[in-house]
Nucleic acid binder design. Structure first.
Length: 281
DNA sequence: AAGTAGTCCTGAGTGC
DNA sequence: TGCACTCAGGACTACT
């Protein structure tokens, strides 16, 4: 379930098992995901210590001893399972290998990190630590929505004159990095803005109002995801509790929580937009 | 330049 | 039970 809050939840789940720990063995079970893996990836990971685990947009970056950083993206269907009991923190045994377990990191501390991705829209690459901004996948990303450079004046400037629907503009990773279909739908509902409205035809005040709303939606989702790490270790496939808090996403035909009108769905550039036709203008 | 379709891939769910 | 069909959290590429 990877949008920014889910990726951040995964990162936090990996921290206790991986940070400062050595990869005893990297198992790479196929040659590619969306793109071919880098040359000799298994050998380049094996024996390295994970010195820092951070996130940029929907990418997890694993800084390794030896000067390389592993870049990971979970695509649409990517999952990460932490198993084992290295520090007495993990209650569950290693599960049996499953279909689509493409990469497995066996940590020296006994933890096992399994990357599973049925649709294989995910990606992994190795880059030189310190040169992250030059990587093609990261180079044109916009600001982090929870960071300081994402503020009201930035968003107003960035969207000024844009003739595209606000929904598409917010999904554009060059505008703001890390939002996906769910959280754009939710933020637009809270802001009372129709997903079909052209960005250029929304007042600066309403554009500005999106900034604190986007931050709040993401922060709440991260908090809910964090609370469910135990579920995640249980490997039941469910990430977080925030899906129970959706106002519009996936609620077509159900009552708007504000006005009671049925939630509507329409397709914009191939993606479903959920919205309240009465509350969002 | 900006905006929009088509595309990769597998699995879950639905209706007949 | 089987089959055909739709849909899915992303984002790159190739069009207009």
């Amino acid at each position: 379930m990877p949008e920014l809050p889910e990726v951040e939840t995964v990162r936090r789940g990996l921290l206790p098992a991986m940070e400062g720990q050595r990869i005893a063995l990297a198992e790479v079970r196929r040659p590619d995901l969306r793109w071919p893996f880098p040359e000799r990836m298994a050998e380049r990971l094996t024996g390295k210590v994970v010195e820092r685990l951070w996130r940029r947009s929907k990418y997890i970056l694993m800084e390794l001893s030896g000067g390389e950083t592993l870049l990971m993206h979970l695509g649409m269907s990517g999952r990460v399972l932490v198993s084992g009991d290295p520090l007495g923190q993990f209650e569950y045994e290693h599960p049996a290998a499953e279909k689509h377990d493409h990469v497995v990191l066996h940590m020296e501390n006994g933890a096992r990190i399994t990357f599973n991705d049925p649709r294989r829209f995910g990606a992994m690459d190795l880059l030189v630590t310190g040169q992250e901004d030059a990587h093609p996948l990261l180079a044109s990303l916009g600001p982090e929505p929870l960071g300081n450079s994402f503020d009201e004046s930035y968003l107003v400037d960035r969207l000024r004159g844009r003739n595209t629907p606000i929904k598409s503009a917010l999904l554009d990773q060059r505008v703001v990095a890390g939002l996906g279909n769910i959280y754009v739908c939710e933020a637009l509902f809270r802001a009372g803005i129709s997903p079909m409205r052209k960005a250029a035809r929304i007042s600066p005040q309403r554009i500005a109002s999106l900034v604190p709303i986007i931050r709040a939606v993401l922060a709440e989702a991260i908090a809910a995801g964090g609370s469910s790490l135990r579920d995640y270790r249980r490997a039941d496939g469910e990430l977080g509790y925030f899906q129970h808090s959706f106002d519009v996403y996936g609620r077509e035909g159900e009552a708007c929580r504000t006005c009671g009108a049925p939630v509507l769905r329409m397709v914009q550039s191939g993606r479903s937009s959920f919205y309240c036709g009465a509350c969002q203008r």
